[in-house]
Amino acid sequence: MSRTLALCFVFVGLTTACGGDKGSDANAAAVAEAEKVWQERCVTCHGADGSGNGPGAAALEVKPRSFKDPTWQSSVDNERIKKVIVEGGASVGLNAAMAPNPDLKDKPAVQEELAKKVRKLAQ
């Protein structure tokens, strides 16, 4: 192995070990923000376990979706889930009581983490 190549490996190793991987920090921030959004906004209607039985659900004429439903899970893709999260239920022909979250429009990583959360609730 040439000396230059060896030095490149050492540099990459040191950069990574010393916090050079900013992608991990960004992902951790997106995961944390998604969890905060879930707890503060979603749990109210969908419930902590995603069954659609949150404390606000009782007051709704149309009950919130249960994310535990395997038929629904297989019928929808992540892009639709993210669209509903950002633009609200009415944007895809669902109930307008599913409020939009326009502050998440420019946060694709947070949207992705919320979609992952919705998927994990079915497991």
Rank of each mutant, 00 (worst) to 15 (best):
R41V: 14
D25R: 03
G54P: 11
A34M: 13
T4L: 11
T15C: 05
V118P: 02
V10Y: 12
V10F: 10
T16K: 03
G54Q: 12
V84T: 05
V43H: 08
C42N: 11
G56S: 06
E40W: 04
M98V: 14
K105N: 01
S75T: 15
G23V: 14
V37A: 08
N95T: 10
K82Y: 08
A6T: 07
I81H: 06
V92H: 08
A26P: 05
A32R: 15
E113M: 14
S2R: 05
A90S: 12
P55N: 07
K105M: 00
K107L: 11
A90N: 07
K68C: 05
W38E: 05
C8K: 10
A17C: 01
N101Y: 00
E112S: 11
Q73C: 04
K22I: 11
T44M: 05
D21C: 12
I85R: 07
C8S: 08
K63Q: 14
E40K: 12
T15G: 09
C42A: 15
A97T: 11
A90V: 12
C8W: 03
S75V: 14
A48C: 02
A122R: 07
M1Q: 08
D106K: 04
N95K: 04
A30R: 12
Q111K: 05
E79G: 09
D25G: 15
A115I: 04
G20L: 00
G54K: 07
F9A: 15
E87C: 13
E79P: 00
A109T: 06
N95A: 15
G23C: 04
R41C: 03
W38Y: 12
T71I: 14
E79K: 15
S24L: 14
T15N: 01
K82G: 08
T16A: 06
C18A: 07
V10Q: 06
L121H: 06
N95Q: 05
K82L: 00
T44L: 15
V62S: 03
C8D: 00
D49K: 15
R41T: 12
S2C: 01
L121T: 09
W38R: 13
